Amino acid sequence: MPWAWKRPTAYAAYATCVCTAAYGLMKLAQALGANALADKDPLPPDLRRRLLARDPLFVASHWILFTLAIVGIVIALATIRPWGRRFPRWILLTATWTAGIFMIVRSLGPVGYGFVGDTLVLTGVQPPPPQHAELARHLARWDLMLWSPFFLLWGLLWTATAWRFTRTTRT
C-alpha cells in the first residue's frame, strides 16, 4: 500500500514530532546548563539535589534523552514518509506502541507521580515524609498541571501514530 503522508491521519505523527522535539530541546538545554524546568522535575529530594547540582550522571542522562528524542523524531517520521520503508516494520511498530503505552502509563501514575500519585499526595491519602512535605506537594502540583498532561498527550499521539502505521502497512 502506498505510504500517503498527506492524509489527515498522518498529522498525529507530525504532532508526535513536535512533542518529541520540545522534550528533546528541553533536555538539550538542561545538558548545556540551563535550568529549563529542571527544578520542577518530580524526583525524590536526594535525586533532585543531584540534578540541580549538575551531577555528571544527570548531565549524561540529559544527553542520552536528547539523543533518544532525535531517534524518536526519526521513528515518527519514518511511519509516514516514503524513506521509512527502509526500516523493518516490526521495529517501527514496537517503538511507536511501546513509547505510547509507556507515556500513558507514566501520565496516569499507578505508582509514584502521575495523575493518581499526584492526587494521592495532594489530598493527603498518601502523605509524603514530613521533612519533604511542602516540596512533594509543590512538585505534585507541577506534575499534575504540566508533566502528566504532557505525557498523556504525547503518549496518545504516539499510539495514534502507531495505530495509523499499523493500519496503513498491513499486508
Score class of each variant (00 low, 15 high):
residue 9 T to S: 15
residue 34 A to I: 04
residue 128 P to C: 04
residue 45 P to H: 10
residue 68 L to H: 14
residue 119 T to F: 11
residue 136 A to S: 15
residue 110 P to I: 04
residue 42 P to N: 05
residue 36 A to L: 00
residue 158 W to Q: 03
residue 14 Y to I: 10
residue 153 L to W: 13
residue 59 V to T: 06
residue 15 A to M: 09
residue 55 D to E: 11
residue 122 L to T: 05
residue 80 I to F: 03
residue 157 L to A: 01
residue 81 R to W: 12
residue 140 A to T: 07
residue 6 K to Q: 12
residue 1 M to F: 06
residue 77 L to K: 06
residue 90 W to C: 05
residue 86 R to Q: 15
residue 128 P to Y: 12
residue 98 T to I: 04
residue 21 A to R: 05
residue 22 A to G: 15
residue 79 T to I: 05
residue 30 Q to L: 01
residue 38 A to L: 09
residue 123 T to N: 11
residue 3 W to H: 15
residue 108 L to Q: 02
residue 159 T to C: 11
residue 43 L to W: 03
residue 3 W to D: 11
residue 53 A to Y: 01
residue 163 W to Q: 09
residue 34 A to Q: 14
residue 151 F to P: 00
residue 165 F to V: 01
residue 125 V to R: 14
residue 83 W to H: 13
residue 54 R to Q: 09
residue 116 V to S: 06
residue 171 T to G: 13
residue 92 L to Y: 12
residue 4 A to Q: 15
residue 70 I to E: 03
residue 103 M to G: 07
residue 11 Y to N: 09
residue 70 I to W: 01
residue 20 T to A: 13
residue 69 A to C: 13
residue 24 G to N: 03
residue 116 V to G: 05
residue 54 R to Y: 08
residue 134 E to S: 09
residue 148 S to N: 06
residue 26 M to D: 14
residue 10 A to M: 00
residue 139 L to A: 00
residue 102 F to Y: 15
residue 95 A to E: 13
residue 140 A to H: 08
residue 69 A to M: 03
residue 55 D to W: 04
residue 47 L to P: 02
residue 157 L to M: 12
residue 20 T to D: 07
residue 109 G to P: 01
residue 77 L to P: 00
residue 138 H to E: 10
residue 31 A to S: 10
residue 59 V to S: 00
residue 41 D to E: 14
residue 35 N to S: 07
residue 56 P to Q: 04
residue 120 L to W: 12
residue 57 L to R: 11
residue 19 C to D: 02
residue 153 L to E: 02
residue 52 L to A: 08
residue 1 M to K: 11
residue 76 A to C: 06
residue 70 I to R: 07
residue 31 A to N: 03
residue 100 G to W: 02
residue 97 W to F: 12
residue 125 V to L: 13
residue 105 V to G: 08
residue 3 W to V: 14
residue 81 R to E: 15
residue 135 L to K: 07
residue 117 G to Y: 03
residue 31 A to I: 06
residue 127 P to G: 08
residue 84 G to T: 10
residue 46 D to S: 12
residue 23 Y to V: 00
residue 171 T to C: 10
residue 162 A to K: 07
residue 137 R to C: 07
residue 80 I to S: 03
residue 169 T to D: 11
